[in-house]
Nucleic acid binder design. Structure first.
Lengths: 341, 341
DNA sequence: CTGAAAGCGCTTACAG
DNA sequence: CTGAAAGCGCTTACAG
């Protein structure tokens, strides 16, 4: 069970009376072999319970069929969806996933990075910008392709990145609310992480009459429904005539919904609410949340493709930034503002 | 950047004018080396940007310093916490995490299992029982130690398992509600997965007078707050005098809280609610949820320790089942039943 | 304290 | 279609 005499290719070969190269050919399905020889070899494989040693194969081929993924955490709907999408794409290409969660711990990130940098993965994808940003230079002499995704602030210019046009995401939310007729909005946000989303929102919300004072921005004390709740209470107190709220993340929006209700107003009759991300649960919220969806699947797809292409073509990936366009999903939390009397 | 001439130990050795074994000794810090030699070698290492090839090392040592983890999904608070705990323990021991999410896809699980079974990981931990159960026999001739955790139904007897005493978890919830004075309860659950939790609950709730008809059990249509919501509406309709509800998972309990409120009753004044798991968010629910905490950290710790001990001692792990005791966390969602007039 | 040899288990050209 | 050789880049005894 543990390690007592594992069969090797050589064992199979001698049992079948052929050379180990023939066994290799059969196992990898690379070159044609006489049917009777193949049958003999397969029988020997079964008998010995032989399974090729992937480490030896990796050393010989120079490929581990594994890609590393760094995410800040997996305990958040956004990143857990990213992880699953990345794994899907990897799997489709026959690759495995080595996962590192950095947990807002720069030192931990650094040491993980260092230990992976030894040809242990064929490529590395880094999602989210919180923890690794200071250690990015380490990556400059990585021995495999590296790419960034879900990157919102401070794009480094030495690495390819596949991310979202977060400013446009905010813009879509703002334009939607303006088009519905809202004129007084509040943005519930996390700064500085979500600065672009907020900027985009105001650009979309003020429309042609840029610079107009059309509302206020409140920072959530934490990235959770509670954070959104508290910030919304603040916002509604400071600006009682608010009819539209944009939360820069769905997680926050969940708390916004609750706070609005708690203040005795209803969504969307009194206040419209828009989120951002489209995490699974907001479709079931009460009311179902209108949100700007982040195309995580496409992002994962594109990032992994980029990386794997570089791996198979043995060249560095093109150093480009690819910005995916988000999409507004209209559900039940937005409507025209009530006629004030 | 990609693969053009990576420095090897031999390169370092010739540059420093020593043999590669000396370099190996220095890199692995294994045996003492003359300070001036070491200095020369370190200089060569820096100059060449040498970093040892972990794959080659693995082939030579027979260890990849990687353990595989199977979970059904990472998009659930329970499993994402398990993943993070496992990674914590692994990291503390200098191991990496290879993650596979099975996504309720038996075939996917099987193929992942097959491809890992080739000495690619030093050990394998399987959490949750939904997807892999049919393929467990494959593991009997795995070439590395395997263990199960977070296993609730149908314990296989060929593999060691570290899990929770789920029946006791239910018992604690039931006893707590009985001790508060409740006599009419409802259990919101997922069957058959959570059967033990429900059984334990009724055992604890009925106390000495076993067999008494003290309430009803309703199955949630899905594993989500909405599932809990719907099931609670049913329960309250079928049994209007319910004063206590046990949800067999916190996720369900979130919906229970909402449904009770929606029905015009309040928690805990009219109805007490107890969950199970203690996922991060329920501490912030309104009201904060009383729940039976699953010691995930201890579970991860014990499972990984078991596995790594087997790895280092080169023997199969003891084939035992270890049942961790959950703990009742009293918060604000439970109280004595109101005096009915 | 340092070096020459053998080996980990595969694969990749290259001959027959 | 099959086999003998060399090599992937380390480490592990074993000599000096």
């Amino acid at each position: 069970m543990c390690a007592p005499a594992v069969a090797t290719m050589q064992d199979v070969a001698t049992l079948a009376g052929v050379s180990k190269q023939t066994v290799s050919n059969i196992v990898s399905g690379r070159s044609r072999v006489r049917p009777d020889t193949e049958a003999r070899v397969r029988k020997a494989i079964d008998k010995l319970g032989f399974t090729p040693n992937l480490v030896a194969r990796s050393l010989a081929t120079g490929s581990t069929q594994t890609v590393g993924l760094f995410v800040p955490t997996v305990a958040s709907p956004f990143y857990s969806e990213v992880v699953e999408e990345v794994e899907n794409v990897l799997q489709a290409h026959g690759y495995h996933l080595l996962l590192c969660t950095t947990r807002s711990d720069g030192e931990r990130a650094r040491s993980n990075l260092a230990s992976l940098s030894s040809r242990f993965v064929d490529a590395l994808l880094i999602a989210g910008d919180r923890d690794l940003i200071d250690h990015l230079p380490l990556l400059n002499d990585a021995k495999f392709p590296v790419a960034l995704c879900a990157w919102e602030t401070d794009l480094p210019d030495t690495l390819p990145v596949v991310t979202i046009d977060y400013e446009h995401a905010g813009f879509l939310a703002g334009r939607h609310l303006r088009e519905l007729g809202h004129t007084r909005a509040a943005v519930i946000t996390e700064l500085p992480a979500h600065a672009k989303r907020a900027e985009g929102f105001w650009r979309g919300f003020s429309g042609s009459q840029a610079g107009t004072d059309t509302g206020l921005t409140v920072e959530a004390p934490e990235s959770s429904p509670e954070g959104g709740f508290t910030a919304t209470e603040d916002a509604l107190e400071q600006q009682p005539d608010t009819t539209a709220i944009f939360a820069t993340h769905d997680i926050l929006a969940l708390g916004v919904l609750e706070a609005v209700r708690q203040c005795g107003r209803s969504v969307p009759a009194d206040v419209s609410v828009v989120g951002l991300d489209d995490i699974a649960q907001v479709g079931h919220a009460h009311p179902a949340l209108t949100t700007v969806a982040i195309p995580k699947r496409e992002m994962a797809q594109q990032a992994v493709d980029l990386l794997l292409r570089a791996v198979t073509e043995r060249r560095p990936p093109a150093n480009a930034v690819s910005l995916l366009r988000p999409l507004l999903i209209e559900r039940e939390s937005t409507a025209e503002p009530a006629q004030r009397v």
